[in-house]
């Protein structure tokens, strides 16, 4: 595990092996290779594959309208109600993954005995509890709308792809608490925007109570963002002086 950047035997750049690099940079001169083809191909193949691609998958149809009626929540109207369900499922997946990210972050915090950021175990535990509560709020909401909160929708699938790198950083034994805070900053920045969007969507279908609950979650996420941003900044600035 590292605590902060240090100088060492990094061999990746050209300046660490000037003699070999000099030889490498003469390769074209000595070998006179032929450079062929049209560089536009790289984008053209993307364009073609986009045109031919199937979607990732679909949002499952509501399992029951009975649950919707019982919950007192209105059936989602509009031409594309599945968009709201997809975004709710995305956030549910994200908050569930986020809870696990904080689990790993708390372990890192305790294992490294970090004292550079100003973070406390109580604060980290409190954020973790918020993420879990947000997950349950979304599960309840999806269920109340007649959806299946266990289904992985396309946006829920993609958010897993998007955050895969964050998981790798936080779970890598070689990374510092500070490294992990940088990953968490990425996570919290996007989370804030996502809750704002969910509140807007809820307002758009006239679910004002739900929108308010989402705005409450947004407030908490903004606090998380401020804390993580402050801890990360303090940790880096202190280490640099």
């Amino acid at each position: 595990m590292r605590t902060q950047a240090r100088t060492g035997t990094n061999r990746t750049g050209i300046l660490t092996s000037p003699d070999e690099t000099e030889k490498m940079l003469t390769a074209e001169e000595e070998l006179q290779p032929e450079f062929t083809g049209d560089p536009a191909d790289f984008a053209d193949i993307k364009v073609q594959s986009i045109a031919e691609a199937d979607p990732l998958g679909s949002v499952p149809p509501p399992a029951t309208v009975k649950g919707t009626l019982k919950s007192g929540m209105k059936k989602i109207t509009g031409s594309n109600p599945q968009v709201f369900i997809d975004k709710l499922a995305e956030r549910a997946a994200y908050e569930r993954g986020g809870t696990r990210l904080y689990d790993a972050l708390i372990v890192k915090f305790q294992a490294t005995g970090d004292s550079t950021s100003g973070a406390t175990l109580e604060e980290l535990t409190s954020i973790r509890a918020d993420e879990l509560a947000h997950y349950h709020l979304l599960v309840d909401t999806i269920r109340a709308l007649g959806g299946d909160p266990t289904a992985q929708t396309p946006s829920a699938d993609l958010v897993g792809v998007e955050t895969a790198g964050l998981m790798q950083v936080v779970n890598d034994p070689r990374t510092s608490f500070q490294d992990c805070l940088n990953a968490m900053l990425v996570a919290e920045l996007t989370d804030v925007d996502a809750w704002n969007l969910l509140a807007t969507l809820a307002e758009g279908i006239g679910e004002d109570d739900l929108a308010q609950r989402f705005r409450d979650a947004l407030l908490q996420e903004n606090k998380h963002l401020q804390l993580v941003r402050m801890w990360y900044s303090k940790s880096v600035v202190d280490a640099s002086t």
Partner: peptide
């Protein structure tokens, strides 16, 4: 070259 560390040329063969 971050991987190759200047030991191996990168040109068409």
């Amino acid at each position: 070259n971050n991987i190759l560390q200047s030991y191996t040329d990168i040109v068409p063969g």
